[in-house]
Design a protein around this nucleic acid. Structure first.
Lengths: 125, 125
DNA sequence: CTAGAACCTGACGTTGACGTCAGAGGCAAG
DNA sequence: CTTGCCTCTGACGTCAACGTCAGGTTCTAG
């Protein structure tokens, strides 16, 4: 498929796909005229890349991890890298959970006691 | 305390503290000569700000939320805002969890079956 | 064959949260 | 008083992940 279709399927921009290629995260075949051609599995790969970006990984880190994911590269270094990123994500989840709980406290205070709502008029839940 | 001490206590840079003030997130008294002076609770406040930044909130969003947190501002809008950000964080946690589980699959594949390690030499766990 | 959409490379623009530097003033110690 | 560290404002630099524009080529429908 061509780049436009891949963009439409994955929901990322054409520019982003070219950027991924520039960063070495996504490869493409070329037609004789130089246009990019992608095989079907490229869509899954783009989804994975997006997933990792969304998890806060940099393109450099993703570049390091991708070979471990699909080519099953398996060295002590790659395993260490995977474990490290996994831990980073775990810590990020923990931090987010603490933040969420903190917000929950605030929300409870603002919704719970009628005292806080009294002077604003309390219309019930 | 002065800005340097607050920075040391909270682990954020002096520049960041001035930036927070510029964004309206942190207030400071001034000495007659114009230097910033912070009360003790400022440290907690900075920690909270850092927490929210780490959760991916923008300074604009934090600016909107902070009054709800400490001044107990309680309007329908503020509650909606809190709920919205709480949900955003929840979704972020869910996404991160999926990513982590995906990484776990990869890790299991790379550590588990001796088949994958065979040609590299398997030295046991 | 031709118009218009899609594609190409190259390059500059954007945004947020600071880093960093310049130039000038403030503060405690000896 | 002066040395040296801290602080001030103002302004430009940075970095990542793209957005956007320019100027040109390619593909496809009619």
């Amino acid at each position: 498929m061509r780049i436009g279709e891949l963009a439409a399927r994955t929901g990322v921009s054409v520019r982003a796909l070219r950027y991924y290629e520039e960063q070495g995260l996504l490869e493409s075949g070329r037609s004789t005229s130089g246009q990019r051609r992608y095989p079907e599995p490229a869509a899954d790969r783009v989804q994975l890349i997006q997933m990792l970006y969304a998890a806060g990984l940099s393109s450099r880190t993703i570049l390091d991890l991708l070979p471990c994911v699909d080519a099953k590269v398996n060295t002590p270094e790659s395993r260490a890298r995977l474990a490290a990123e996994r831990q980073r994500i775990d810590e990020q989840i923990a931090a987010l959970t603490r933040t969420r709980d903190r917000l929950d406290q605030v929300i409870e205070l603002s919704e719970g006691p009628a005292s806080g709502c009294a002077h604003l008029g309390f219309h019930g839940v």
